[in-house]
Design a protein around this nucleic acid. Structure first.
Length: 198
DNA sequence: TACGGGATCCACT
DNA sequence: GTGGATCCCGTAT
């Protein structure tokens, strides 16, 4: 079942935790890619120096952040990779790790230009265990920036009922963010192989 | 296993 | 002109 606007219209930390175990679906011209979210990071806007919208900044890049809850915020990082975020209320959740479920051959081709079964053990592990990697595998780029996640192209749905053991720790790659670098806003599913960093 | 540099773009200052 | 919510490969331990 597809997640609706109400799911995203809540506290960002709550949404970041509840996104674990949910299924990300990208319909590329009828070619469906699906994967389970296993790692997220919450970015809290106003008092979070690691967030693009820190202090209410509203530049051209971050203006998408001020759109409705349940919108995709995609931006380029380090010149060559894209990061995929899910908006809550003027804040966002970065998706850092996904476990591939459907369309795995397409993902393997996107990442390594060969079928899933011909990947090495290491390549399978590195298919979607990081924000830049999963964006390549899921064909997420800047054309999906500001896309409504309550639509039919890119959306989230409920996973199977299961017991999820959530690990709560600090975020990655934000050393410049002063006190905010120590905020425990990274969440991942304990023991899952597609977590980017344990 | 752990570090360091290169790749490559554009928003921001 | 600068530098980043990253990844990958090379070299060193």
């Amino acid at each position: 079942m597809k997640l609706n606007r109400d799911f995203y219209s809540r506290d960002t930390i709550t949404v970041a935790k509840e996104l674990l175990g949910k299924i990300l679906v990208h319909n590329v011209n009828g070619n469906v890619l699906k994967g389970k979210i296993v790692e997220t990071e919450a970015y809290l806007g106003l008092q979070d120096k690691a967030a693009h919208s820190y202090g209410g900044r509203k530049t051209k890049r971050v203006e998408t952040m001020y759109g409705p809850p349940g919108t995709a915020y995609v931006y380029l990082i380090y010149g060559i990779y894209y990061c995929f975020n899910i908006l809550t209320v003027k804040e966002g959740v970065l998706i850092r790790g996904i476990e591939p479920l459907e369309g795995v051959d397409q993902m393997a081709i996107n990442r390594f230009e060969k079928s899933f079964k011909s990947l090495t053990k290491n390549q399978k592990k590195n298919l979607t265990n990081g924000p830049g990697k999963l964006s390549i595998a899921f064909q997420i780029d800047k054309t999906l920036n500001a896309v409504d996640l309550c639509g039919d192209i890119l959306y989230l749905e409920n996973g199977v009922e299961e017991e999820i053991n959530i690990i709560e720790t600090t975020r990655i790659g934000i050393d410049y963010a002063e006190e905010a670098r120590y905020f425990p806003y990274r969440y991942y599913i304990k023991g899952n192989a597609y977590v980017s960093k344990v």
